[in-house]
Amino acid sequence: MTKRKKLSQGQLRRVRSNQEKRLKKQDSHQWLDDQLGPQQEGTIISRFGQHADVEANNGEIFRCNMRRSVGSLVTGDEVVWRAGNEEQSGIRGVIEACHERRSVLTRPDFYDGIKAIAANIDQVVIVSAVLPEFSTSIVDRYLVAVEDVDLEPIILLNKVDLLDAEQRKIIEEQLKNYQQLGYKVIYASTKQAEGLDDLSQQLSNKTSIFVGQSGVGKSSLVNSLLPEQSIDTKEVSEVSGLGQHTTTTARLYHLVCGGRLIDSPGVREFQLWHLEKDRVAWGFIEFRPWLNQCRFRDCKHQGDPGCAMQEAIDSGKILQQRFDSYQRILETMENNKPSRVIPGKK
C-alpha cells in the first residue's frame, strides 16, 4: 500500500486556519436573550458542520447553533440548550453548554488530529462482512480502539448469506478465536433475517454504535431494525471492490427494544497512530498477563532473550496470528503517523 504523503508546514497552517474559520461561523445567527426560551436538557442526535440537531425531552428535534464556548459536539452528547421564539433560516435554537461525557469513542484523522466519533455510549458493534472483504486485522484494530476507552465490543459478521458452507466454516474457525477470548460474536444477514433477534437483544436498553468499513452493511442493519427509517444504502462497487459511503454523519436512533443506536459513517482505513505502543498491547486482552514480564524493559518481543510474550506464544496461551496482527499494527502506526499531529476536538 502506498504510504500517505505527509502534510507540509504550509498545509498544516491552512488546515488549522480553516478550523478556526469554521468555529467563528458557528454562532453566525446572533440570538438576543429575550429571543430565547428557558434552558432545557437535550441530546445531540446528529451534527452538521456548524449546526447540530438536538432532541428535546419530548422527542421533538431542533436544529441549533452552538455557542463558541461549547467547543466541538458529537452525536450522543448531552447538552443544555434554548429554543428560539422564532425560526431563523432553519435554525430553531442555540446550544449553550455540554455535560461531561461518560464515555467517548475516538479515531485519528490525518487532517484534524484526534476526532471524537460519538459520546455517552455503552458498547461498540464492530461490523465486518464478507464483502468488501473479511479481515481479522481490521477487527483487531477496532478491538484495540474500543478496549483503549474501556467500552464493551461486539463483533458482528454481516452478509453471511453470501457464504457457502465451506467458506462459512473457515470464517467461523477464525471468529472462534475471539469467542474464546470472551468476545460476543453475531452472524447476521439482512436478506435472510439471520441474527437480527440476537442483535436486538444485545442492543436492548443500551446506547450502542455501529462502526466498520464502508460497504459492510451498517445502514442495511439499521433499516432491518427500524424499517420506518428507510436509510439510503449502496452495494459494494463492482469496479473497485470497495465499499461506498452512504452514511455521511453519525445519527442516533431509538430502538423498539428500548436501546439507542448510533450509525456512524464507514471508513476505508482505521488507523491507530494516536495510541502509544503499550496501549496497543493492552488492547490485545490476552497479552495483559504477560505485559511487563519480559527480562528486559525495552523488549521488542521479536526473539529477545527472556521474552514473556514469546514464551506465552510457545505455550499456546497467545495465538501466533494475533501476535502477528499486533506487530503489523505497530508497523503501520509508524508508517502512517503524520509528522505533526493537528490537535483534535474531542
Score class of each variant (00 low, 15 high):
Lys3Leu: 12
Ala56Thr: 06
Ala56Pro: 04
Gln26Ser: 11
Arg14Asp: 09
Gln9Thr: 11
His51Met: 13
Arg16Pro: 00
Gln35Pro: 02
Leu7Asp: 05
Asp27Arg: 09
Gly42Asp: 04
Gln19Cys: 05
Arg14Val: 07
Gln19Val: 08
Ala52Ser: 15
Lys25Gln: 11
Arg4Lys: 15
Arg47Leu: 08
Ala56Cys: 13
Gln11Ile: 06
Lys21His: 09
Leu7Thr: 05
Gln26Glu: 09
Arg16Glu: 12
Ile45Asn: 03
Ile44Glu: 02
Arg47Asp: 01
Gly42Ala: 07
Asp34Arg: 15
Gln40Trp: 01
Met66Asp: 03
Lys24Trp: 03
Lys3Ala: 10
Gln50Ser: 15
Ile45Glu: 00
Gly42Tyr: 00
Arg13Val: 00
Gly10Ser: 09
Met66Tyr: 01
Gln30Pro: 03
Asn57Leu: 06
Lys3Tyr: 07
Ile44Met: 05
Thr43Arg: 06
Arg63Gly: 03
Arg16Ser: 08
Arg63Leu: 07
Gly37Leu: 11
Leu23Pro: 01
Ile61His: 01
Leu23Phe: 05
Arg4Ser: 11
Gln50Trp: 02
Ser28Ile: 11
Ser8Ile: 04
Thr43Trp: 05
Glu60Val: 12
Met66Ala: 08
Ser28Cys: 10
Ser28Asp: 12
Ala52Phe: 01
Glu55Leu: 11
Leu12Gln: 09
Glu41Ala: 14
Lys24Leu: 10
Glu41Trp: 07
Lys6Gln: 13
Ile45Gln: 02
Ala56Phe: 04
Glu60His: 14
Asp53Arg: 03
Lys6Ile: 10
Arg63Lys: 14
Arg16Ala: 11
Arg4Ile: 14
Thr43Lys: 06
Pro38Leu: 09
Ser17Trp: 05
Arg22Ser: 11
Lys3Asn: 10
Arg22Cys: 04
Pro38Val: 06
Asp33Tyr: 10
Ser17Asp: 09
Gln9Tyr: 07
Asp27Ala: 13
